[in-house]
Design a protein around this nucleic acid. Structure first.
Lengths: 170, 170
DNA sequence: GCTTGCGCTGGAGTGCGCTCCAGGTCCGAG
DNA sequence: CTCGGACCTGGAGCGCACTCCAGCGCAAGC
């Protein structure tokens, strides 16, 4: 019980949520957090409901929903039944997006892991990427660039210059 | 040699990777993708090694590594043994970051799911967020704002203005 | 050979999401 | 009463990661 703590000041909210004070003010101005009250002297006061709202907004923002979309979600009138399904649909769309992000992250994780294993292997064998023993696909740059042909197919017989830039704005 | 397809043109790379042509050029200029050749007439030519490199870079970028850090990773000399451990450490750090992101995403997913369930419940019961029957924490804004007290504790008896902005820069 | 169009370069421009600042009010400590 | 500090508002500024553009050269279908 009594765990509600009544309303918090902006500093406390900032510390609890990790959002900067400026961000909290900005979110409010942008219409992402309603329910923020003011003390009689004009200071922000965040009741528990606002805190809950902020956590939802944070989840939406962290998962990549643009500020404009969060605002749109928020502005569907205050909890009226007729908007529940709209809000729910928006949340479900975002949930789908999150699931896709997780999938993508796992894919990318696999790419990194493969690369890490590769380096570990090369290190234990004491090899550079270019070493013959390292194998064809050793490093991203393990292969040679000379296997270079015109993009659309063998275009010009001339390949005198062979490699090119290899940039590196070091 | 069969499936290697030799080198690709920028358009093909763009289609295969989903990166825009402009982005590919920009990444190259920024030193994120070495190994890009040129045909004798100056057009970009991406050998298989570059393609593999791009996929790694994509994984790094998509998982939130800043361009500057990717460049740093890339510029650790071409596959020399002495840098393997450095590269590996960077990749491992990024892997850690990915894992944290996945965790965070799951947390946020739980928040959304809870909210979705809540709306579903309210809809089937035909309730607004404010309805008594909806329960204390019905909606983020389900609570009343009037429960407003000074942040640092009961400050002033005055609370005349009640709610606040509700901005809406629509 | 002419024309349509892809690609090249260097540099300027853009959108998003904050972040910082100036100038002012109010509060509590000393 | 005075001073330092937290907060207020409105608005300007900023960093990142692209994205767009002008002006030009090669390329290849007709």
């Amino acid at each position: 019980m009594g765990a509600v703590t009544t309303a918090l000041g902006i500093r406390e909210v900032s510390e609890h949520t990790g959002l900067s004070i400026d961000t909290l003010r900005w979110y409010e101005r942008e219409g992402l957090i309603p329910l923020v009250g003011r003390t009689p002297t004009g200071r922000r006061s965040y009741p528990p409901a606002a805190m809950r709202f902020i956590r939802l907004v944070q989840a939406l923002r962290r998962t990549g929903m643009p500020v404009a979309d969060v605002r749109h979600f928020v502005q569907l009138g205050g909890g009226r039944l007729e908007h529940h399904s709209t809000r729910m649909a928006l949340l479900e769309a975002q949930r789908g997006s999150i699931e896709r992000q997780v999938d993508q992250l796992h894919e990318d994780l696999a790419v990194l892991t493969a690369k890490i294993d590769q380096y570990r292997d090369l290190i234990t064998r004491g090899l550079d990427c270019e070493d013959e023993a390292a194998g064809r696909d050793a490093c991203p740059g393990g292969d040679d660039v000379r296997a270079l042909v015109g993009p659309g197919g063998p275009a010009t017989p001339d390949r005198g210059r062979g490699r090119a830039s290899l940039r590196s704005t070091s």
